[in-house]
Design a protein around this nucleic acid. Structure first.
Length: 414
RNA sequence: GGAGGGAUGCCAGAGUGGUCUAAUGGAACGGUUUGCUAAACCGUGGGGACCAAAAGUCCCGCGUGGGUUCAAAUCCCACUCCCUCCA
């Protein structure tokens, strides 16, 4: 959500952002509703005031005079109710449109249609010769060492189901612990966050209404979140933090659920795209300052890069093009791990900042140095996502003799 | 599963249809005073409309959402959460 005052004054910026992000939105319609809405509010406020004043007079009257005056008050009230009805209709449409207004883009964001147009900004690590290191896909390695059972996974869980077994189970736990420890040492508060969340958190983080079809709904009107970002952002909903509370840094573990609607053809076999996975997510709330957002965005990205480096997985960082950005994201970097069997990089991390887009929807504010109340800024980035990362980890660390070696940093956790 | 009681501002707590413009106390923040600290005194508190802005005026906010009424913290309905007791 953006400030309506900002939208009013930066109409063209919003139109441009909508166009580049491929969002269908009638900005002019929104602005005309805004004008109607405000004029009705003014009118209603004035009518309420008059009505209140006249209502108080009634106490001094009695008998027939009182009857007559009550009649008059009833008419006044009727008029007011009609106006309020009009306002409600205007506001319903206004609110719907407001949820579709995209955040503007950082000037460094390139144009583009999809993830194919994302631009590499740096790469790390030496790309191994796939044939020389063993030439086997992660599924071949895992099946050979009895680390995965996809058939029974599908039997039990349905399409995209899986069981991780033996070393894969241990490896997952080790990765989680390593990442949680690593970020806790950097001052992030470790959390285990709920995956079952109420709708307002999904609207608040900007997942709804846009990505509603990708989220599982329960029979209790709750939802299964696709990331801990949703719950952790909801953690401070409706709060006013003090200036000393910021920045808030959290590292949260949670199971994640995604319907993967609209991706039926993609990655059908394996662990890269599954309905149920586990993720450790970094979340930051900071002061409402662009420079600060940028600084923390780089920091979050650097943290994940450090994790990849310690795991010795070759990767590259791309800056996402406008068409690949969510409604609320001002700028996003993806970290893509090198997948030897596919001979290309694939996304394992996603690092974004939102300015006050999420906090405005979630009503997360703070008092600044001048005791002014402002919406905080928010950011998030993946720390590690399993089982997805296993693909890169196993393939890059395989040995010709059919084994694989785990990175040094994980050894103490296994 | 059943029966009661409750939810008021940052906290405690009064208010059961019309001067509630939500009393009072405490905390916090800002200010005055002060050599410094404490105390004392004054002020402030969330959202919104009008306004270039400030000032100011007004509207909304007593768990949430509806309703009754000229008028609702107060009455009615539904929901959420908390507490007590019974099984």
């Amino acid at each position: 959500m953006l400030d309506i005052k900002f939208i009013r004054e930066n109409k063209d910026l919003i139109k441009d952002a909508a166009k580049r992000k491929k969002v269908v939105l009638d900005v002019d319609r929104l602005l005309s509703l805004d004008i109607k809405r405000r004029s009705l509010i003014s009118e209603i406020d004035a009518l309420r005031y008059e009505h209140k004043i006249s209502s108080e007079k009634i106490i001094t009257l009695s008998g027939e005079k009182r009857e007559k005056f009550t009649e008059q008050l009833r008419d006044e009230k009727n008029n007011l109710v009609h106006k309020e009805y009009d306002l409600r209709a205007v506001e319903t449409e206004y609110n719907e449109l407001m949820l579709l207004v995209p955040n503007f883009l950082d000037p460094t964001v390139p144009d583009g249609e999809s993830d194919a147009d994302n631009k590499e900004i740096r790469a790390w690590g030496e790309i191994p010769d796939f044939k020389k290191i063993g030439g086997r896909t992660y599924l071949e390695i895992m099946e050979d060492l009895d680390m995965v059972d996809l058939e029974r996974g599908v039997k039990v869980s349905g399409f995209r189901g899986y069981f991780l077994k033996n070393e894969a189970a241990k490896l997952s736990l080790a990765l989680w612990q390593f990442c949680l420890d690593f970020l806790a040492k950097k001052g992030f508060v470790p959390m285990i966050a709920p995956s079952i969340v109420k709708k307002d958190n999904l609207i608040g983080t900007g997942w709804f209404p846009q990505a509603e079809e990708d989220v599982y709904k329960t029979q209790d009107e709750t939802y299964l979140a696709g990331t801990a970002e949703v719950a952790v952002m909801g953690y401070h909903k409706d709060e006013i933090l003090s200036k000393n509370d910021l920045p808030k840094k959290y590292v949260a573990f949670s199971p994640c659920f995604r319907r993967e609607a609209g991706s039926y053809g993609k990655d059908q076999k394996g662990l890269f795209r599954v309905h149920e996975f586990f993720k450790i997510e970094q979340i930051i709330l900071c002061r409402a300052d662009h420079q600060e957002s940028v600084r923390f965005h780089e920091e979050l990205t650097a943290n994940s890069e450090e994790i990849m480096q310690l795991l010795k997985i070759p990767y590259r960082v791309v800056i996402n093009c406008a068409g690949d950005l969510g409604l609320g994201q001002v700028k996003k970097y993806d970290i893509e791990a090198w997948i030897p069997s596919e001979g290309k990089y694939r996304e394992t991390h996603s690092s974004s900042y939102f300015h006050d887009f999420q906090t405005r929807r979630l009503n997360i504010r703070y008092k600044d140095e001048e005791e002014k109340i402002k919406f905080a800024h928010s950011l998030n980035n993946t720390a590690i996502a399993t089982p997805r990362v296993l693909e890169a980890l196993l393939e890059n660390h395989q040995k010709p003799e059919g084994k694989f070696e785990i990175p040094e940093v994980l050894k103490k956790y296994m």
